[in-house]
């Protein structure tokens, strides 16, 4: 038995190395996403943004991390100490483990599982428990409001997101991310965002709502419930929530790129001339380019729109987004059945 485990050791070590190779760039990505957010929103608002720490403020995220690490974690009296500590971990873990099934490039994937879509979807849904627990364990009324809003919001938007996914599954005929990307092969016109345009929009909007970002940031709702579910958190425990939020922002952007914009496929595929010219660009670069577009959109929306009210958000989710998906799924099914080209021929 022990010998058997020892034989498995190199494989374990290899997986561990892969995990580290995903997590470290991811955490760096989160750090620089916060920096990009401050810079982009700064320029949108006619400000400069952070520019003092390091060259043009490049070290600002690290200064922030150091500050957060050295801050005291304040535990409110009469809070549930144990759950209060566990909640941020509950939020962060699913946001990180979901990355296992994400394909970065043709062969760059930790676990190429067949039910990848379901797995990622399940993981992103579990994150709401962390928020619920945080809101309840803090024993604060503002946190409670944040948690309740967040629970209602995440659950209802999960449904429209799930329906949008069904459309993709029908179109691709697979739940494996690599297969979904390969199903979009051919040219830019083969990408799913054209036949699935309504589902693409629904998934995008729901993705923003799912990550509790503006204009759906009701769970935090600065001007109404101060900071919502994480109002009582400070220092590292707050940083974990922060990390989880940004990691899931990146995750949703990756999902959008994979499911609708052809993942690591080159946009010049199938165009004579341009295709060969850009052949040297690795798939990862195309992927990151598409992801950064969605991340920029996140920041852009945040700087532009006012916030929804709780009931209006529910109305949008249940009365607009879900009916849209329900109408479009049969349409996709018919398109697939009739082998309508160029996507399903």
């Amino acid at each position: 038995m022990i010998m058997g485990l020892l034989e498995e050791l190199p494989a374990f070590a290899w997986i561990l190395i892969k995990i580290v190779a995903i997590l470290i760039p991811l955490l760096l990505g989160v750090a620089y996403l916060t920096f990009a957010e401050r810079k982009v929103i700064g320029y949108i608002q006619g400000r400069i943004g952070p520019n003092r720490v390091g060259f043009r403020g490049m070290l600002q995220p690290f200064a922030d991390i150091i500050k957060l690490v050295f801050k005291e974690i304040i535990i409110p009296v009469r809070s549930n100490r144990y759950l209060f500590f566990v909640a941020p971990i509950f939020t962060l873990t699913p946001a990180l483990i979901a990355w296992a099934a994400i394909p970065f490039a043709p062969n760059l994937i930790l676990a190429n599982i067949n039910a990848g879509v379901l797995y990622v979807f399940a993981m992103s849904s579990i994150a709401v428990y962390g928020i619920l627990i945080a809101g309840w364990a803090s024993n604060s009324k503002y946190a409670m409001f944040g948690a309740l809003r967040s629970a209602a919001q995440t659950i209802s938007y999960e449904i429209s997101m799930g329906f949008a996914l069904v459309g993709v599954l029908i179109a691709a005929g697979s739940m494996n991310f690599q297969d979904i990307i390969l199903a979009q092969q051919g040219s830019l016109l083969n990408w799913f965002f054209i036949p699935l345009l309504p589902l693409f929009m629904v998934f995008w909007i729901s993705g923003i709502a799912e990550t509790n970002r503006a204009p759906f940031d009701l769970a935090e709702g600065e001007s109404e419930i101060v900071a919502g579910f994480h109002v009582e958190y400070s220092g590292v425990s707050f940083a974990l929530f922060f990390l989880a939020e940004y990691a899931s922002m990146i995750l949703i952007s990756f999902l959008l790129a994979i499911l609708f914009l052809g993942g690591w496929l080159s946009p010049f595929e199938g165009i004579p001339g341009l295709d060969e010219w850009f052949a040297w660009v690795p798939g990862l670069a195309w992927m990151l380019l598409k992801v950064s577009f969605f991340l920029f959109a996140y920041l852009w929306l945040r700087a532009t729109f006012p916030r929804y009210r709780y009931d209006q958000l529910m109305r949008l989710g249940w009365k607009v987004l879900i009916p849209t998906t329900i109408v479009w799924i049969p349409v996709v099914a018919v398109l697939v059945k009739l082998n309508v080209g160029p996507w399903f021929s």
């Binding site: 929103i41 608002q45 600065e222 001007s223 700087a303 729109f305 916030r307």
Partner: peptide, 9 residues
């Protein structure tokens, strides 16, 4: 109401 850019403008 959540539109923060207008504030800075």
């Amino acid at each position: 109401i959540g539109a923060m850019s207008v504030f800075l403008y």
